[in-house]
Simulated scan of single mutants.
Amino acid sequence: MNKEHLWQAWCDGCAHPNPGHIGLGALLLEPDGSRHELSQRSPHSGCNNEAEARALLATLQLARTLQASALLIHCDSDVVVRLAQNASSTEAARLAPLFAEIRAQIKCFDQFELRWIPQHRNTEADHLSRSALGLPTRSPAKPRKRK
């Protein structure tokens, strides 16, 4: 990817309770370092996977509005990363129209990459999604001991 024009984004969604109200969060960084934040309550309700997918869609829409052409998005949902890139998947069939919309939005970018990251590297987007529902910041995960 051309780093000179590369926008980076981190997105996260939460459902409270699960299933329940959906909060969307995203942080977008322009190539010059300018920050754009998204923290909004979705008009939809659903499960955590739907919340994560809707957060990705909202991130794509915001990036297009801001006229990004090269975009790298980080997401801590393995399910969303897999399904956003696999049109033939039958996993989460109920959400197939949402993932079709995500794939259509992805095609609008000259360069695009979606990467999975661990949850502890997505704290700002997590905070933004939880804030949209009036939820407190999540406590940091305790490191796991290796066996």
Rank of each mutant, 00 (worst) to 15 (best):
L27M: 10
C11V: 02
S69G: 10
L38N: 01
L62S: 10
P17E: 08
L29Y: 10
L72M: 12
S34I: 05
A55M: 03
G13H: 00
G13N: 06
A51R: 02
A68H: 10
P17Y: 03
S42W: 04
L28Q: 08
N49S: 09
H44V: 07
A26C: 10
D76T: 03
P31T: 13
L72I: 07
S45F: 12
C14K: 11
L56D: 06
R54D: 03
R41P: 06
L62M: 15
L62F: 13
R35Y: 08
A53I: 06
L38E: 00
L24H: 00
T59W: 11
P17T: 04
R64C: 05
H74I: 03
H74M: 12
A15K: 01
A51I: 01
H44Q: 14
T65S: 14
R64V: 06
S42H: 00
L28I: 07
I22M: 02
S45M: 12
A58L: 04
L56Q: 05
S69R: 14
L38K: 05
N49K: 01
N18Q: 04
L28N: 02
G13F: 00
N18G: 07
H16Q: 12
H74A: 12
A55E: 07
A68D: 14
T59L: 08
H36M: 07
D32P: 08
E50Y: 03
H16R: 08
L66P: 09
